[in-house]
Design a protein around this nucleic acid. Structure first.
Lengths: 142, 142
DNA sequence: TCTATATTGATAACCGTTATCAATTTAAAA
DNA sequence: TTTTAAATTGATAACGGTTATCAATATAGA
Protein backbone atom coordinates (compact mmCIF):
# COMPACT_ATOMS: atom_id res chain seq x y z
CA UNK A 1 0.00 0.00 0.00
CA UNK A 2 1.44 3.27 -1.20
CA UNK A 3 2.23 5.67 1.58
CA UNK A 4 3.70 9.13 1.97
CA UNK A 5 7.17 7.93 2.88
CA UNK A 6 7.55 5.80 -0.23
CA UNK A 7 6.17 8.56 -2.42
CA UNK A 8 8.61 11.05 -0.98
CA UNK A 9 11.54 8.65 -1.29
CA UNK A 10 10.67 7.96 -4.92
CA UNK A 11 10.38 11.64 -5.63
CA UNK A 12 13.78 12.29 -4.11
CA UNK A 13 15.43 9.45 -6.02
CA UNK A 14 13.91 10.71 -9.25
CA UNK A 15 15.46 14.11 -8.70
CA UNK A 16 18.83 12.78 -7.50
CA UNK A 17 18.11 14.06 -4.04
CA UNK A 18 18.79 12.18 -0.82
CA UNK A 19 16.77 10.53 1.87
CA UNK A 20 18.05 11.90 5.16
CA UNK A 21 17.10 11.50 8.81
CA UNK A 22 15.99 15.13 8.91
CA UNK A 23 13.62 14.69 5.98
CA UNK A 24 12.21 11.52 7.50
CA UNK A 25 11.64 13.20 10.85
CA UNK A 26 10.01 16.25 9.29
CA UNK A 27 7.57 14.17 7.25
CA UNK A 28 6.81 12.00 10.27
CA UNK A 29 5.99 14.94 12.48
CA UNK A 30 4.09 16.72 9.74
CA UNK A 31 1.80 13.70 9.31
CA UNK A 32 1.06 13.69 13.03
CA UNK A 33 -0.83 16.97 12.56
CA UNK A 34 -4.21 17.54 11.01
CA UNK A 35 -5.43 20.46 8.95
CA UNK A 36 -3.32 23.54 8.40
CA UNK A 37 0.05 23.41 10.11
CA UNK A 38 2.37 26.34 10.78
CA UNK A 39 6.14 26.14 10.61
CA UNK A 40 6.24 27.17 14.24
CA UNK A 41 4.22 24.13 15.37
CA UNK A 42 6.34 21.80 13.31
CA UNK A 43 9.55 23.27 14.65
CA UNK A 44 8.48 22.93 18.26
CA UNK A 45 7.38 19.34 17.95
CA UNK A 46 10.42 18.28 15.95
CA UNK A 47 12.86 19.88 18.35
CA UNK A 48 11.59 17.66 21.15
CA UNK A 49 13.37 14.83 19.37
CA UNK A 50 15.99 16.69 17.38
CA UNK A 51 16.79 19.98 19.11
CA UNK A 52 19.35 21.16 16.60
CA UNK A 53 17.26 20.98 13.44
CA UNK A 54 17.88 24.14 11.44
CA UNK A 55 14.92 26.24 10.49
CA UNK A 56 16.20 26.45 6.92
CA UNK A 57 16.09 22.67 6.61
CA UNK A 58 12.51 22.72 7.73
CA UNK A 59 11.52 25.27 5.09
CA UNK A 60 13.53 23.43 2.45
CA UNK A 61 11.86 20.13 3.23
CA UNK A 62 8.37 21.62 3.20
CA UNK A 63 9.21 23.04 -0.21
CA UNK A 64 10.17 19.57 -1.42
CA UNK A 65 7.01 18.03 0.00
CA UNK A 66 5.03 20.70 -1.77
CA UNK A 67 6.86 20.12 -5.03
CA UNK A 68 6.05 16.41 -4.96
CA UNK A 69 2.39 17.05 -4.25
CA UNK A 70 2.13 15.61 -0.76
CA UNK A 71 1.65 18.99 0.80
CA UNK A 72 0.00 22.22 -0.17
CA UNK A 73 1.10 25.63 1.04
CA UNK A 74 -1.35 28.42 1.80
CA UNK A 75 -0.75 32.06 2.58
CA UNK A 76 -2.73 34.11 5.03
CA UNK A 77 -3.13 37.71 6.04
CA UNK A 78 -0.74 37.44 8.96
CA UNK A 79 2.09 36.77 6.55
CA UNK A 80 2.61 33.18 7.64
CA UNK A 81 2.23 30.17 5.46
CA UNK A 82 0.46 27.03 6.49
CA UNK A 83 1.01 23.57 5.13
CA UNK A 84 -1.74 21.08 4.48
CA UNK A 85 -1.59 17.35 3.88
CA UNK A 86 -2.78 16.48 0.38
CA UNK A 87 -2.61 12.70 0.30
CA UNK A 88 -4.97 10.17 1.77
CA UNK A 89 -7.42 12.87 2.79
CA UNK A 90 -10.93 13.17 1.39
CA UNK A 91 -11.81 16.50 -0.04
CA UNK A 92 -14.96 18.23 1.08
CA UNK A 93 -16.67 21.59 0.83
CA UNK A 94 -18.40 23.60 3.51
CA UNK A 95 -21.77 25.05 4.28
CA UNK A 96 -21.25 27.74 6.90
CA UNK A 97 -23.96 29.41 8.91
CA UNK A 98 -23.04 33.07 9.28
CA UNK A 99 -25.34 33.31 12.26
CA UNK A 100 -24.23 30.51 14.58
CA UNK A 101 -21.08 29.33 12.81
CA UNK A 102 -22.28 25.79 12.28
CA UNK A 103 -20.51 24.10 9.40
CA UNK A 104 -21.63 21.15 7.35
CA UNK A 105 -19.34 19.26 5.03
CA UNK A 106 -20.62 18.13 1.68
CA UNK A 107 -19.52 16.94 -1.72
CA UNK A 108 -21.15 17.31 -5.11
CA UNK A 109 -19.67 15.36 -8.00
CA UNK A 110 -21.21 17.53 -10.70
CA UNK A 111 -19.78 20.68 -9.23
CA UNK A 112 -16.38 19.04 -9.23
CA UNK A 113 -16.87 18.12 -12.86
CA UNK A 114 -17.65 21.68 -13.90
CA UNK A 115 -14.68 22.94 -11.96
CA UNK A 116 -12.42 20.77 -14.07
CA UNK A 117 -14.13 22.03 -17.19
CA UNK A 118 -13.40 25.63 -16.25
CA UNK A 119 -9.77 24.87 -15.49
CA UNK A 120 -9.28 23.26 -18.87
CA UNK A 121 -10.80 26.27 -20.53
CA UNK A 122 -8.19 28.54 -18.93
CA UNK A 123 -5.21 26.19 -19.14
CA UNK A 124 -5.08 25.61 -15.41
CA UNK A 125 -3.91 22.42 -13.77
CA UNK A 126 -6.31 22.02 -10.87
CA UNK A 127 -4.62 21.07 -7.60
CA UNK A 128 -7.23 21.86 -5.04
CA UNK A 129 -10.29 23.91 -4.44
CA UNK A 130 -12.19 25.56 -1.72
CA UNK A 131 -15.88 26.21 -1.81
CA UNK A 132 -17.69 27.82 1.04
CA UNK A 133 -21.42 28.52 0.96
CA UNK A 134 -22.44 31.11 3.49
CA UNK A 135 -26.01 31.25 4.69
CA UNK A 136 -28.44 30.87 7.54
CA UNK A 137 -29.09 27.39 8.87
CA UNK A 138 -32.59 26.14 9.67
CA UNK A 139 -32.10 26.52 13.42
CA UNK A 140 -31.21 30.18 13.13
CA UNK A 141 -34.18 30.87 10.86
CA UNK A 142 -36.65 29.87 13.57
CA UNK B 1 -27.27 56.54 -5.97
CA UNK B 2 -24.95 55.18 -3.33
CA UNK B 3 -21.35 55.06 -4.38
CA UNK B 4 -17.98 54.08 -2.94
CA UNK B 5 -16.97 57.63 -2.12
CA UNK B 6 -20.06 58.31 -0.04
CA UNK B 7 -19.77 54.98 1.71
CA UNK B 8 -16.16 55.62 2.58
CA UNK B 9 -16.90 59.15 3.76
CA UNK B 10 -19.72 57.90 5.98
CA UNK B 11 -17.52 55.20 7.39
CA UNK B 12 -14.81 57.73 8.22
CA UNK B 13 -17.24 60.13 9.85
CA UNK B 14 -18.69 57.31 11.94
CA UNK B 15 -15.25 56.50 13.28
CA UNK B 16 -14.22 60.13 13.77
CA UNK B 17 -11.70 59.80 10.99
CA UNK B 18 -11.08 62.39 8.31
CA UNK B 19 -11.70 62.72 4.63
CA UNK B 20 -8.39 63.77 3.10
CA UNK B 21 -7.10 64.41 -0.41
CA UNK B 22 -4.82 61.41 -0.11
CA UNK B 23 -7.69 59.09 0.78
CA UNK B 24 -9.77 60.45 -2.06
CA UNK B 25 -6.95 59.97 -4.55
CA UNK B 26 -6.22 56.44 -3.37
CA UNK B 27 -9.84 55.35 -3.65
CA UNK B 28 -10.12 57.02 -7.05
CA UNK B 29 -7.09 55.25 -8.45
CA UNK B 30 -8.04 51.96 -6.81
CA UNK B 31 -11.42 52.02 -8.55
CA UNK B 32 -9.74 52.60 -11.89
CA UNK B 33 -8.32 49.08 -11.68
CA UNK B 34 -10.14 45.81 -12.15
CA UNK B 35 -9.60 42.51 -10.39
CA UNK B 36 -6.76 41.98 -7.97
CA UNK B 37 -4.55 45.01 -7.50
CA UNK B 38 -1.09 45.06 -5.97
CA UNK B 39 0.21 47.90 -3.83
CA UNK B 40 2.97 48.38 -6.36
CA UNK B 41 0.51 49.11 -9.19
CA UNK B 42 -1.45 51.52 -7.04
CA UNK B 43 1.67 53.33 -5.94
CA UNK B 44 2.93 53.80 -9.48
CA UNK B 45 -0.34 55.13 -10.82
CA UNK B 46 -0.98 57.43 -7.88
CA UNK B 47 2.49 58.93 -8.01
CA UNK B 48 1.85 60.18 -11.52
CA UNK B 49 -0.49 62.73 -9.92
CA UNK B 50 0.89 62.91 -6.40
CA UNK B 51 4.58 62.00 -6.45
CA UNK B 52 5.12 62.38 -2.74
CA UNK B 53 2.45 60.05 -1.43
CA UNK B 54 3.98 57.98 1.35
CA UNK B 55 3.80 54.24 1.05
CA UNK B 56 2.56 54.01 4.64
CA UNK B 57 -0.45 56.14 3.79
CA UNK B 58 -1.27 53.81 0.96
CA UNK B 59 -1.18 50.77 3.21
CA UNK B 60 -3.16 52.57 5.90
CA UNK B 61 -5.87 53.61 3.48
CA UNK B 62 -6.21 50.15 2.01
CA UNK B 63 -6.64 48.89 5.55
CA UNK B 64 -9.47 51.37 6.10
CA UNK B 65 -11.13 50.43 2.83
CA UNK B 66 -10.94 46.80 3.87
CA UNK B 67 -12.36 47.56 7.31
CA UNK B 68 -15.37 49.29 5.81
CA UNK B 69 -16.04 46.42 3.43
CA UNK B 70 -15.34 48.15 0.14
CA UNK B 71 -12.20 46.12 -0.45
CA UNK B 72 -11.08 42.60 0.25
CA UNK B 73 -7.46 41.68 0.84
CA UNK B 74 -5.93 38.43 -0.34
CA UNK B 75 -2.55 36.87 0.41
CA UNK B 76 -0.43 34.87 -1.97
CA UNK B 77 2.65 32.68 -1.97
CA UNK B 78 4.95 35.43 -3.15
CA UNK B 79 4.27 37.26 0.09
CA UNK B 80 2.39 40.13 -1.50
CA UNK B 81 -1.17 41.06 -0.80
CA UNK B 82 -3.67 41.99 -3.44
CA UNK B 83 -6.73 44.12 -3.00
CA UNK B 84 -10.06 43.50 -4.67
CA UNK B 85 -13.06 45.75 -5.10
CA UNK B 86 -16.10 44.43 -3.24
CA UNK B 87 -18.87 46.86 -4.10
CA UNK B 88 -20.82 47.29 -7.29
CA UNK B 89 -19.23 44.23 -8.78
CA UNK B 90 -20.96 41.17 -10.04
CA UNK B 91 -20.17 38.11 -8.05
CA UNK B 92 -17.56 35.85 -9.49
CA UNK B 93 -15.40 32.95 -8.47
CA UNK B 94 -11.67 32.66 -8.74
CA UNK B 95 -9.09 30.55 -10.43
CA UNK B 96 -5.88 31.16 -8.51
CA UNK B 97 -2.40 30.12 -9.52
CA UNK B 98 -0.66 28.99 -6.35
CA UNK B 99 2.64 29.58 -8.05
CA UNK B 100 2.51 33.18 -9.29
CA UNK B 101 -0.74 34.36 -7.74
CA UNK B 102 -2.40 35.14 -11.05
CA UNK B 103 -6.14 35.07 -10.69
CA UNK B 104 -8.83 34.63 -13.27
CA UNK B 105 -12.43 35.40 -12.53
CA UNK B 106 -15.17 33.19 -13.79
CA UNK B 107 -18.81 32.31 -13.38
CA UNK B 108 -20.60 29.07 -14.04
CA UNK B 109 -24.38 29.08 -13.87
CA UNK B 110 -24.70 25.34 -13.35
CA UNK B 111 -22.37 25.37 -10.40
CA UNK B 112 -24.50 28.12 -8.88
CA UNK B 113 -27.56 26.02 -9.46
CA UNK B 114 -26.14 22.99 -7.67
CA UNK B 115 -25.06 25.16 -4.79
CA UNK B 116 -28.68 26.14 -4.30
CA UNK B 117 -29.70 22.52 -4.49
CA UNK B 118 -27.29 21.59 -1.71
CA UNK B 119 -28.47 24.43 0.46
CA UNK B 120 -32.07 23.34 0.10
CA UNK B 121 -31.10 19.84 1.03
CA UNK B 122 -29.61 21.02 4.29
CA UNK B 123 -32.19 23.71 5.01
CA UNK B 124 -29.77 26.54 4.43
CA UNK B 125 -30.73 29.96 3.13
CA UNK B 126 -27.84 30.86 0.84
CA UNK B 127 -26.55 34.39 1.26
CA UNK B 128 -23.18 34.34 -0.37
CA UNK B 129 -20.50 31.98 -1.49
CA UNK B 130 -16.84 31.79 -2.17
CA UNK B 131 -15.29 29.32 -4.54
CA UNK B 132 -11.59 29.28 -5.21
CA UNK B 133 -9.94 26.82 -7.52
CA UNK B 134 -6.24 26.52 -6.82
CA UNK B 135 -3.90 25.29 -9.47
CA UNK B 136 -0.96 26.02 -11.72
CA UNK B 137 -1.50 28.39 -14.63
CA UNK B 138 -0.16 27.69 -18.07
CA UNK B 139 2.70 30.15 -17.72
CA UNK B 140 4.01 28.54 -14.56
CA UNK B 141 3.83 25.07 -16.10
CA UNK B 142 6.38 25.98 -18.78
C1' DT C 1 36.73 2.65 0.87
C1' DC C 2 36.60 6.55 -2.10
C1' DT C 3 34.62 10.42 -4.15
C1' DA C 4 31.46 13.56 -6.23
C1' DT C 5 27.80 15.94 -4.80
C1' DA C 6 23.72 16.78 -2.04
C1' DT C 7 22.58 18.38 2.66
C1' DT C 8 22.85 20.59 6.84
C1' DG C 9 22.86 24.41 10.40
C1' DA C 10 24.06 29.08 11.34
C1' DT C 11 23.18 33.27 10.09
C1' DA C 12 22.95 37.21 6.99
C1' DA C 13 20.04 39.09 3.60
C1' DC C 14 15.64 39.99 1.60
C1' DC C 15 11.40 42.30 1.19
C1' DG C 16 6.61 43.33 2.03
C1' DT C 17 4.35 45.41 5.68
C1' DT C 18 3.90 48.03 10.16
C1' DA C 19 5.17 51.08 13.89
C1' DT C 20 7.13 55.42 15.28
C1' DC C 21 7.32 60.29 15.44
C1' DA C 22 7.63 65.16 14.47
C1' DA C 23 5.37 68.29 11.32
C1' DT C 24 1.11 69.30 9.15
C1' DT C 25 -3.78 69.25 8.16
C1' DT C 26 -8.51 68.71 9.31
C1' DA C 27 -12.97 70.01 11.18
C1' DA C 28 -15.63 71.52 14.73
C1' DA C 29 -16.08 75.01 18.31
C1' DA C 30 -15.46 79.70 19.72
C1' DT D 1 -12.43 83.71 10.77
C1' DT D 2 -9.56 82.02 14.37
C1' DT D 3 -8.50 78.61 17.59
C1' DT D 4 -7.49 74.15 18.99
C1' DA D 5 -7.56 69.25 19.90
C1' DA D 6 -6.87 65.42 17.51
C1' DA D 7 -6.27 62.89 13.25
C1' DT D 8 -3.08 62.40 9.29
C1' DT D 9 0.90 62.50 6.74
C1' DG D 10 5.64 61.17 4.92
C1' DA D 11 10.12 59.48 6.08
C1' DT D 12 12.19 55.89 7.75
C1' DA D 13 13.38 52.47 11.21
C1' DA D 14 11.80 48.18 12.79
C1' DC D 15 9.60 43.81 12.26
C1' DG D 16 9.10 39.04 10.94
C1' DG D 17 8.59 35.26 7.93
C1' DT D 18 11.18 33.27 4.40
C1' DT D 19 15.33 32.54 1.44
C1' DA D 20 20.16 32.69 0.07
C1' DT D 21 24.90 31.88 1.27
C1' DC D 22 28.62 29.06 2.69
C1' DA D 23 31.77 26.06 5.06
C1' DA D 24 31.44 21.60 7.27
C1' DT D 25 29.30 17.15 6.92
C1' DA D 26 26.60 13.19 5.29
C1' DT D 27 25.01 10.34 1.56
C1' DA D 28 25.14 6.76 -1.99
C1' DG D 29 26.99 4.89 -5.99
C1' DA D 30 31.50 3.31 -8.02
Amino acid sequence: MLNEFDLFKDFLRQQNLRWTPQRKMILEVFLSFEGHVEIESLKNKIRLHQPDLGIATLYRTLKLLTDCGLVEAHSFQNGKKTYERMFHVRHHDHLICTCCGETIEFEHPLIEKYQLQICEQYGFTLKNHKMELFGICRNCLK
